[in-house]
Simulated assay, not measured.
Amino acid sequence: MLKIGCHLSVAKGFHAMGKDALKIKANTFQFFTRNPRGSKAKEIDPKDAEDLLKLVSENKFATLLAHAPYTLNACSADERTREFATQVMADDLVRMEYLPHNLYNFHPGSHVGQGVEKGIEQITSLLNALLKPEQTTTVLLEAMAGKGTEVGSSFEQLKQILDGVILSDKVGVCLDTCHIYDGGYDILNDLDGVLDHFDQVIGLDRLYAIHLNDSMNPRGSHKDRHAKIGEGSLGLEAITRIINHPKLRDLPFFLETPNDLTGYAQEIALLRSIYKEL
């Protein structure tokens, strides 16, 4: 069965997100842990979290994905910004234990002129300071498009970060189809080659989730502009190959396309129609 969901608003609470997911025929979803462009987080109601866990279990949902705010930059040149990143991720990882055994995704960050190597060192240092053996959450590095001074736009950079993390079983990767295409990986014409390269550099066992997006821009543009499924430079045929690929088809897919709930419902129905059940 296709594991497919979209980005839902946590403002109404955990259980409400689960009900919204059911309305649009999703069997997983992604949510921001807090204001995506700020720092404020909604106080967690333990009963609300329990209600979501019950809904998830009863409806056989796939793994859920939480997303850190965009303001989290673990490799900023500004020390206060790095301290903010540490505080936010530390708090988020505590909060994630209300929804145990799920995923937490973050953008590695922008080195802002310090250089990639320094950025990687700072990201690794943050993860080593925060990850704990007892946590149930797996933290995912999101592959980026490479705009500006972003770190994590190549599989090799992601591998360097992963290699530096002491608790290696607590970290993995989330691939974003728009990001890696804009970053130069030809998933339109050579999906097999890209996945083989990922496997050689990082290992497909470290891939936990896919952000499924079309791209407004051509390969290698480094723009990071998401498009609706089938309406961008990747197109529906490429998306069909991605969700049906034997190395990807069992992973959870999360839509981050420019849509409202109705639009997401339409995309999910489309994707289910082109997914080939084995």
Rank of each mutant, 00 (worst) to 15 (best):
P218Y: 01
K47W: 05
G230A: 10
I202W: 07
N102A: 05
K40P: 00
I44D: 04
S76M: 13
K132L: 14
S233K: 15
A26G: 00
L8K: 02
P133G: 09
N35P: 06
A16R: 14
D92L: 08
G18K: 02
K25P: 00
Y104V: 05
G152V: 01
R241S: 07
M96N: 07
N213F: 10
I123N: 10
G193K: 05
A49T: 06
G184L: 09
A85K: 13
V171E: 08
N217S: 11
L130Y: 06
F61D: 12
T33E: 05
I120F: 12
I44K: 03
G235M: 12
G230I: 09
T81P: 00
I210Y: 09
I202T: 11
I210Q: 08
S215C: 07
H197C: 01
S233Q: 14
N59Y: 12
L2D: 13
L65G: 04
G115K: 07
G146M: 02
R37C: 01
A21S: 11
I24Y: 03
H222G: 02
Y275V: 07
L195Q: 10
F84R: 13
K118Y: 05
P69I: 03
I274V: 15
I202S: 06
R95H: 07
P252I: 06
Q160P: 01
N102E: 12
T137N: 06
K25D: 14
T124K: 12
D196F: 07
D78Q: 14
P69T: 03
Y208Q: 10
G183S: 12
L261V: 00
D91R: 15
G203M: 10
L103M: 12
I229H: 07
T28P: 12
V139E: 10
G164D: 04
P252Y: 07
L22K: 11
L255D: 11
R272I: 00
L2G: 13
D190R: 14
R249V: 09
A129C: 02
T63C: 02
A62Y: 13
L55P: 01
D20Q: 15
N105K: 08
L251H: 08
V112F: 06
T124D: 14
T71R: 00
